[in-house]
Design a protein around this nucleic acid. Structure first.
Length: 566
RNA sequence: CGGGGCGUGGCUCAGCCUGGUAGAGCGCCUGGUUCGGGACCAGGAGGCCGGAGGUUCGAAUCCUCUCGCCCCGACCA
């Protein structure tokens, strides 16, 4: 294509609203324009890139036997009510009414629709297994859209669903997806980690996330460089670091002492001269309306995900000040586990075996010293804390690192959640009726592009992987008014096209600086510059990422690009 | 939902405190000179200052309300 005919609205300056690199560059490079908060128009360049990404996704999904469909974005409330998610999803679900005042919503995922198709049609084990997928626009009324295309209210997602007779079948479908996702992200030129994840509201037993490390991300993962263990921070298991000070020996009795105005762990630590690791943190939680006391080491943080899993509660939150006062007779800041009779107490495993620690005394402005978990109070010991940087890896003991990441893809073993709630059953060989076991697998298409930019950019712009760049190569005559340059550039451009390359001819009557800057900005991986060396029959072949430049004869330029592209 | 910030030509911003009906740079259009990393000269187009109401002889500027956008936190497959 000829640049002079195209709509590529590059900006010299960064629009004020953009903060993260991918957002800045998508705007500056003329890929996207914002219509409203979290809602973007994808212009020519973005669309080309997204089409390349979806083509790769399609190829790999088809390769594992996936069958592409396209399902409605507009759903009747009934199917969401059946699965129970009409209520669970709350304000995140876009809801609307039709002219008859019937409730509808815009699909945020498609488990319900897929299951409703399957239950009408899948009747026999002989029809299993199935993998169905689609590439569809999804809608989520995010409380806080942000960071360009990273968190938006309308986005494209590849979602697939597997239907199997039994757990072994689900394992196989899950494994196929796992491998297909690796191939997809490899082909897209991304560096990523696969981590164990919480299956959360989706239900189900096993789940992995495909994460790209980036400062713009909003998820944390814990990762062990030594053995490869990696998990979402919500779920990561670790060996707690050693306490900073040894516990006092002996079978000591809790002893109250006055701590006027000392409420936080840090304040009590300063007051007692003891490190945070010698203290216990008492958190009061409300799980489905019941209060629980949670004990953690002073320097640890509660993982609400682990807590929710331990209590099997649907709704958890921190208890409010009134609830705390009523149950403990003291305010937060002076709470502790000693003599707590009527509440269930959960304690983190890092407290198991510790002795003679500090805790609140359930009396304002008093704490206890010499509190021994298991002796001075009874508790159920569970892994409840969030892993911290420097904790030991649970598998090999090497220190864990925390990384900020963007979630690109997520695969779930759903189990029977939807087949049971929505009545998707098949007959077995024995003639009995059993629910179908399902899996659900998503990829955020725009996030692939955003992550590629986050991973591959410099001060001049994007440096996209060739597989997903809107064009593979741009042919740039330095002086568009020089007939010889023009002719050579056109020949090379046609040569590239003949070799099946997506080529762009920068035929604009602009100064060379402008053309180079724009080419760098929009991230075309290769550039052929037709300039003064044309007199010797040579042109320059420049690689965007490395800036490496080699002179090649005009007749060989197209082939040189071809050799570098996937 | 809590906290903070911002809405002035396509973009970046000044003007607002101390009211007198709008500016710069970039971009855009025309002509000319240029042509290897965002050229130069000359001429030109483009803004009811987010919206509504109020104060005032007079509001981009002061007051009230409202809408929108961004950031931090909470929340979040």
């Amino acid at each position: 294509m000829q640049w002079s005919n195209l709509f590529i609205p590059t900006l010299r300056e960064t629009p004020a609203e953009a903060e993260v690199p991918s957002h800045r560059l998508l705007l500056r490079a003329g890929y996207i324009r914002q219509l409203s908060a979290g809602i973007y128009s994808y212009l020519f360049l973005a669309q080309r890139s997204l089409l390349k990404i979806t083509a790769i996704v399609r190829e790999e999904m088809d390769a594992i036997g996936g069958q592409e469909m396209l399902l409605p974005a507009l759903h009747p409330a009934e199917i969401w009510q059946e699965s129970g998610r009409w209520d669970v999803m709350g304000a995140n679900l876009f809801r609307l009414k039709d002219r008859w005042q019937r409730d509808l919503c815009l699909g945020m995922t498609h488990e319900e629709v897929m299951t409703s198709i399957a239950r009408g049609e899948l009747r026999s084990y002989k029809q299993l297994p199935q993998i169905w997928y689609q590439i569809q626009t999804k809608f989520r009324d995010e409380p806080r859209p942000k960071s360009g295309l990273l968190r938006v209210r309308q986005f494209i997602m590849k979602d697939s669903y597997s239907f199997d007779l039994d757990a072994a079948g689900l394992d196989a479908a899950y494994d196929k997806h796992y491998k297909a996702y690796c191939r997809i992200f490899d082909r897209c030129g991304l560096k990523y980690s696969v981590v164990e994840a919480d299956s959360g509201a989706m239900g189900g037993s096993q789940s992995h996330e495909f994460m790209v490390s980036a400062d713009a991300g909003e998820d944390f993962i814990a990762i062990c460089d030594a053995c490869g263990y990696a998990a979402n921070l919500e779920k990561a298991v670790s060996a707690a670091s050693a306490p900073a000070a040894a516990d006092p020996e002996g079978d000591l009795t809790p002893e109250a002492f006055h701590t006027p105005g000392r409420k936080t762990i840090a304040e009590v630590g300063e007051f007692t001269g003891l490190p945070q690791t010698s203290q216990m943190k008492s958190l009061v939680m409300n799980a489905d309306g019941k209060l629980l006391l949670v004990m953690l080491r002073g320097d640890h943080q509660l993982s609400e995900t682990k807590f929710a899993a331990a209590t099997v509660a649907k709704e958890i939150r921190q208890a409010n000040a009134d609830e705390i006062r009523e149950a403990f007779g003291a305010d937060a800041g002076s709470l502790g586990p000693v003599d707590v009779k009527n509440l269930r107490i959960l304690a983190d495993t890092a407290l198991e075996g510790r002795r003679n620690m500090i805790s609140g005394a359930n009396r304002d402005d008093y704490h206890f010293r010499h509190v021994t978990p298991g002796e001075d109070f009874k508790a159920e010991f569970r892994d409840l804390r969030q892993a911290a940087a420097g904790d030991g890896c649970a598998s090999c003991g090497a220190p864990l690192a925390l990384k900020k990441t963007i979630e690109l893809g997520h695969i779930f073993k759903l189990g029977y959640k939807y087949s049971e709630s929505m009545g998707l059953n098949v007959l077995t060989a024995e003639g009995g009726e059993v629910p179908v076991i399902m899996g659900s697998y998503g990829i955020g298409i725009e996030r692939v592009l955003s992550c590629a930019i986050e991973q591959s950019h410099d001060k001049d712009g994007m440096a996209l992987p060739a597989a997903i760049a809107p064009f593979a190569v741009v042919v740039t005559p330095v002086n568009a008014n020089d007939p010889a340059q023009r002719k050579a550039a056109e020949e090379i451009y046609e040569g590239c096209r003949a070799l099946g390359l997506d080529a762009l001819l920068d035929d604009r009557d602009e100064r060379p600086g402008v053309k180079f800057k724009d080419a760098d900005l929009i991230g075309i991986p290769f550039r052929i510059t037709v300039g003064k060396k044309l007199a010797q029959g040579m042109v320059e072949f420049v690689e965007r990422r490395t800036r490496a430049s080699v002179d090649v004869p005009v007749a060989e330029a197209a082939a040189a690009v071809r050799a570098k592209c996937p």
